[in-house]
């Protein structure tokens, strides 16, 4: 029994760190640029493909390549799509992001075909903690996700560029007044967010199958997480990732496995019933 619970918590931490990392990338881009970057699911998928395609170079070089490639993609999509739409209302941005998702998935389908790829784990083997058997690869995923988010925190707090990003997030107009370039900061922000999404995909690749629509439900969960955590809250997004992981893991262990994907959504709806504006959302009365 205790071993079961430990195993479920271990599974939850692993899944939760992937959800959390993707949610952090969304939260960063949403918090600073107000772009609901739905296509980050596809960025994660391309990150996973980078690892699968470059598998002959080991694991870490392809992971680095995934991060760099996705950062470049981030700059491109910001410059070509989201920067021109910077004053557009939410619905437009959502649709543009979805269009981008389709283009990227379609490209993956054309380039890599519909078949699943699998990636060998970076470190084979595993260990048993408190009766829960955990592969080293899964520990690596959790550690890498937490280190990435810690690194992002340090970057945003203590570097000049990081402070500029937070300034633009607080007030676009204000940052213009003090001489920042919100558009340049936007490029950097989207690059970092995209790189984090790519990292999430690269970490996921060895423990899941790689195929063009692999991140579809993942990105929906990540969106649910950032609504719950309060859009723009980065550490809240990581925590929300773990909560969703726990909810799924225990739900599928003790309720029913078929409805695994439904538990986070059900939790989300329950919270909406109590707090219609989300856990940290501001109450905006319109009527």
């Amino acid at each position: 029994m205790a071993a079961d619970i430990a195993q479920n918590i271990a599974n939850a931490l692993m899944a939760g760190s992937i959800y959390g990392l993707l949610a952090v990338s969304l939260a960063l881009v949403f918090g600073v640029l107000e772009v609901p970057q739905f296509a980050f699911g596809a960025h994660a998928m391309l990150g996973a493909y980078s690892v699968a395609i470059l598998a002959s170079y080991g694991y870490w070089i392809p992971v680095a390549a995934a991060i760099v490639l996705m950062a470049i993609l981030g700059v491109l999509v910001q410059a070509l799509i989201f920067d021109p739409l910077r004053n557009a209302p939410p619905a437009t941005l959502f649709i543009a992001a979805f269009g981008l998702l389709l283009v990227l998935q379609g490209m993956a389908l054309v380039l890599f075909g519909p078949n699943n790829h699998s990636v060998a784990p970076a470190i084979a083997g595993g260990t048993t903690i408190l009766g829960a058997s955990i592969t080293y690869q899964r520990m690596l995923v959790v550690a890498a996700a937490i280190i990435a988010v810690l690194g992002l925190n340090v970057f945003l707090r203590y570097t000049k560029t990081g402070r500029n990003i937070r300034a633009v997030g607080q007030s676009r107009t204000g940052s213009l007044v003090v001489g920042l370039s919100p558009r340049r900061v936007g490029l950097i922000t989207m690059a970092i967010g995209s790189a984090l999404a790519g990292l999430a995909g690269a970490l996921l690749a060895p423990i899941a199958q790689v195929y063009p629509t692999m991140a579809d439900t993942l990105v929906i969960k990540a969106f649910i997480i950032i609504v719950l955590a309060g859009m723009g809250s980065i550490n809240g997004a990581l925590l929300g990732g773990f909560i969703v992981g726990l909810c799924e893991s225990f739900g599928s262990a003790y309720l029913s496995l078929e409805f695994k994907d439904a538990y986070p959504v059900a939790l989300f709806i329950l919270i909406l019933l109590v707090r219609p504006q989300g856990l940290y959302g501001k109450v905006v009365r319109v009527a």
Binding site: P89, P90, V265, A266, F268, R285, V286
Partner: peptide, 18 residues
């Protein structure tokens, strides 16, 4: 009822998925 903009889109996305 109280949700606007992005929040409304994401909420309907979640409920639709359910």
């Amino acid at each position: 009822l109280r949700m606007e903009g992005h929040y409304f889109v994401i909420a309907t996305l979640g409920i639709g998925l359910l």
